[in-house]
Amino acid sequence: MKTRKLNVLIGWGAAVLMMGSVAVEASPERDLKAFQTYFVEKFPLTKYSDFNNGVYSIDESFRQQWESIEEFPPYESFMEMGEEEWNKAFANGAGYASCFGEDVSAIRGFYPHWDSKREQVVTLEGEINRCRKDNGEKPLKWKVGTLAYLSAYIAYEGRGQKVDVVIPDDPKAVAAYEEGKRFYYAKRGQLNLACADCHVYQAGQHIRADLLSPSLGHTTGFPVFRAKWSGKSKSGDGMGTLHRRLGGCNKQVRAKPFKPQSEEYRNLEYFLSYMGNGMEWNGPSYRK
């Protein structure tokens, strides 16, 4: 009699625990609220809509330099090259519009999203190369060059729309989101640092002379022209995609970067973009 009672109790306890953990795991909405509240409270002087400007949203003197650079932005000529590429026909006569539609301004805000047929997160850059492959064209390099220019053109045309990433009520989509989140909070590399260590907990602090940007709105401004990525022959012409930046931040902590458009980085992009819901898309951008 006594033992049965105990079993029932344990059974109950387990059920309650399970319910608890399900509720905790499957709540991107709750994560979003906590995440955004954290940054709003940490940076009371920053307007909410301004968090999409990276480090410039939290530092007045950097911001002034940046605003003057943005008046004649160094990414402009690359955007124009992207537009030319967009208008070029493939060898088969089709073009990018055959995959993405004629309205270029509607594209940026559509990615990233969960593709329930292919059961994976799809990204803008990933779909550009898929479009090329489907039309018999060679894929473009992922991190620099023409793909970054195209992405810049599409981003520019889609400026001002609100980020509105959806995590559908599909366990696989939620799992992809959770993977991205786990990646963000996991310590890695020889230096043992998580993305969140630098961009959540230490955001606003200096690491050497670099100010750490808050991760809220981190994906909205891509692709970016970075002074650091320009000039030296190896680093290219300055333009780079989001996945180039992710790889760079992994290398900084002496972790092996994942491949651009790997499942890891797509899921990470999914999580990070979702955290920016409600911000405006504002790429391409200039960064130091």
């Binding site: 020889q190 230096l191 043992n192 640092l193 260590d197 907990y201």
Partner: peptide
């Protein structure tokens, strides 16, 4: 902590 484990990770 964000301080790297200098000895343990052979930094």
């Amino acid at each position: 902590t964000v301080m790297p484990p200098f000895g343990r990770h052979h930094i």
